[in-house]
Simulated scan of single mutants.
Amino acid sequence: MPGLIGIYPFGLGRENWRLARFVYYGLLALQHRGQELASIITYDSGGFHESIEKGTVDEAYTEEKLNNLPGFIGLGYVAPSIDQKPVIIDHPIGLILVGDGKPNLESRVQSSWRAFAEMLADEIHRTGDALESARRLIEEIDGGFSFIALTENQELIAGRDVHGVKPLEVGSLGFDLGAIASESSALDVLGMEHITHVNPGEIVRFNPYSIEKARAKPKDKPNLSYCSFEYVYLARPDSTINGIGVYEVRERIGMLLAKEKPVKADTVIGIPETAIPFALGYSKASKIPASLGFITTGRKVRTAIKPSLFERLMGVQLKLNPIKCVIDGRDVVLIDD
C-alpha cells in the first residue's frame, strides 16, 4: 500500500532541472498511502542522492533539506512501516527501486523487494537492456505488485504484475517532464496531464528522448485482479485508477446499498471522511438528506494503516468527534467504509 512517484526530464538542458521539490509535492498527494516513512531520491552527474526519513512528508522535509537535494531525475516513496524502505543496489549496476505490494519471492515484503531489485540489476547488467530485463522478470515472478526503479544509466523503469493488482498512472508536463505515480492525484497536484495507466504486465522505460513500453507474456493467461481496497478506502477520491474514477465507484456503492438496505431515517452520515462518498451516494438514491456528523482534531491521519493497535485506537479517538446537534434525537444511517 505504499505510494510511489517517479519524475523524469526530457531533451536538451534536462540537467538544469532540480526535481526534489516536485517529488515532495507529489508525495504530499500520496501521504495517505503511508505515514511512517518518506523518501526522496534524486540523480545527477554526481550519482544518486538519497534522503530516507521517518515520519510524514511535511515533517521529514524542511526547506533546507529540499534545497540541499540536487538532481534532475526524481524518485519518491511513502510507506506505512519503517521496515519498508527503498532498495539500494550497488553491484553489478547502481539501482534504486521502490515498490508497492509484494513479489512472491520471500516471506517478508522488504526481503522480496530486495531479491527483485537484485535480480533486475543482474539481468540489466547481463543484457544491457533494462526494458527487456524488467519484462522477463514480470513474466517469471508472480505476486501483486508495482514498482519504479532508477538506474545509474539514467533510465527510469516502472511496471505492474500481470494481474494488475497494484496501480500505476502516467502523466506529463508538456514535452519537458514525464511522470509515473501510484495515483493520478499526485500528477494533478503537479499540474501535469494524466495520460493513461500502466496496463497489467506492462513495463514503461523513460530515457532522455523517449518513452518505451513492453508487455509481459506469461505462459498461463493471468486473471485480472484489480485491488478493491484502492477503490473502497486507500486511494484518494479525486484519483482515477485503471481508467475508473474512485469517487464514482464509492458513490455508486452507496447508491446500491440504499437499494439493497432501504430504511426510514432523518439523515445519512459517512464515517470516517473516506466514507462520505458512500453516504452521498446513499443519500442520492434514498432521498434522505446527508449531514456532516464528525469533525477531525489535528492532522489528518490514516488510522487503519497505523502500525500498532494503540495508535489506531488513539487515532480514532482524536479524529472522530461527533457534531451532537446533527445526531441527537435523530434516526441516523451511519455508513462506515
Rank of each mutant, 00 (worst) to 15 (best):
L168R: 03
T267N: 05
K85N: 10
L97D: 00
I88Y: 11
N223M: 10
S210A: 15
L97N: 00
A115I: 09
L105C: 07
E183K: 08
E118R: 15
C325M: 13
V170P: 02
R14Q: 11
G128V: 10
E311V: 06
L75M: 07
T151W: 05
I195T: 09
P86A: 08
D188A: 12
V57G: 05
T196L: 11
D129Y: 02
V78Q: 02
A258N: 08
A258C: 07
A79R: 01
I335Y: 03
A279F: 04
I180W: 01
L190G: 07
V301C: 03
A29T: 05
K264F: 10
Y231D: 02
W113V: 11
G159T: 00
E193I: 13
K319T: 12
D337W: 01
I5S: 02
D58G: 11
V57A: 07
V301E: 07
G143W: 08
P200S: 11
K219H: 14
F175L: 15
N67V: 01
I93D: 03
E63F: 09
T196C: 12
A38Q: 01
T62L: 10
R252P: 00
L313W: 03
G47T: 07
E251R: 15
P70S: 10
G201F: 04
Q84M: 14
I52G: 05
L19P: 00
G281V: 02
D142H: 14
H49F: 12
Q110K: 09
F116I: 06
F310M: 07
W113T: 06
A258F: 03
L173D: 06
H32Q: 12
I148V: 14
K219V: 15
A290L: 04
M1D: 03
L12Y: 14
E139N: 06
E53V: 07
G144E: 13
V165P: 00
K264H: 12
R114Y: 12
N321F: 06
R136Q: 13
K54T: 12
A60T: 08
E106I: 00
R136M: 13
V98R: 01
L320K: 06
K217R: 15
L105K: 09
K300P: 13
F147W: 05
L27S: 03
E248G: 12
Q31T: 08
Y233R: 08
R215K: 14
V78W: 01
E15K: 15
G11C: 11
K166W: 04
T127R: 14
N16M: 10
L30C: 06
Q317E: 10
V57D: 00
F116N: 04
G191S: 11
T42R: 00
P103Q: 09
M1T: 11
P222A: 08
L97S: 01
D142T: 14
P167H: 04
D266R: 10
I82Y: 07
A181S: 14
T296H: 13
L131H: 00
F10H: 05
W17A: 09
S146E: 04
L75K: 01
L28I: 13
I288H: 01
R160V: 00
V98T: 08
